[in-house]
Amino acid sequence: MPTTMVAQSLASGILVGALYGLAAVGLSLVFGVTKILNVSHGELLMLGGYTSFWLFTLFGVDPFAGIPLSMFALVIIGLIVYQLLFSRLIKLPTEDKIRTSLLVGFGLGLMLQNIALRLWTADNRGITPSYAGAVLTVLGVRLPYVRVASLVIAFVFLLALQLFLQKTYTGKAIRATAQDWEAATLMGINVHRVYLLSFVLGTALAGAAGTLVAVGYSVEPVMGLHWTLKALIVLVMGGIGSIAGTLIGGLILGVTESAAAVWISGNYRHVVGLAIFILVLLIRPQGLFGAKEG
């Protein structure tokens, strides 16, 4: 097999893997803090993608410039979804909360998927700004500019989130609440506000990820479950509460999938990730890089 082909597949894997990481980190944040396992995260990501699709086709907003807008849209949606649905589960004991949130998320995902189907039809949609086709070629490896930019942006988001959680008072309050909400309450932290903030932060990140997916790849109504699974796989590989672990998990998943596509068949690229996922679940349920805080 020619080296460039290997390099090409490695590069594509890394490019898509960064997006997996970004998609997963929102889910991870929400789950780590609130113990809500929101399996409609993929659908929220999809809505982020369609938001920038609309912004681009209706108003000509550049997708990268539109990221804050699609994040804002997802903040609003996140607020509604949290206040209307998930906040009702917040006081349940952890096990019940996870179980019920899985069901609610499942139903919500179905709903959002069908709303998207009505609004945007079943077609694959992509965002194609003037520079969409531009490709950077390094040693024979083709790197589309938009995907490289997406990679950089994903890294920036993850780094910013890391700094926010480590350095700011609010970030520390979020980490404290994730570890022991009762002790956090005794510090004078309003944990309900922390829950809301974390949830909305998670959906905002889904919005950003959705935009990057729409510009580098494409969006369609059925993509939600697909992306939720990607995020869950990464979550299980990277462990909860570790942003670095999430990023590495995302990159590994991306690269493995690309490798599978080259060596097995493109049809099986998504199966390989799922198979790894099951294996990790069974062999190391705390995640490969499981840095469960505490």
Binding site: E95, L102, L229, L281, P285
Partner: peptide, 11 residues
């Protein structure tokens, strides 16, 4: 944990 079983079945 129950949630792992759940997402495992989904996968």
């Amino acid at each position: 944990r129950g949630d792992y079983f759940t997402i495992g079945t989904l996968a």
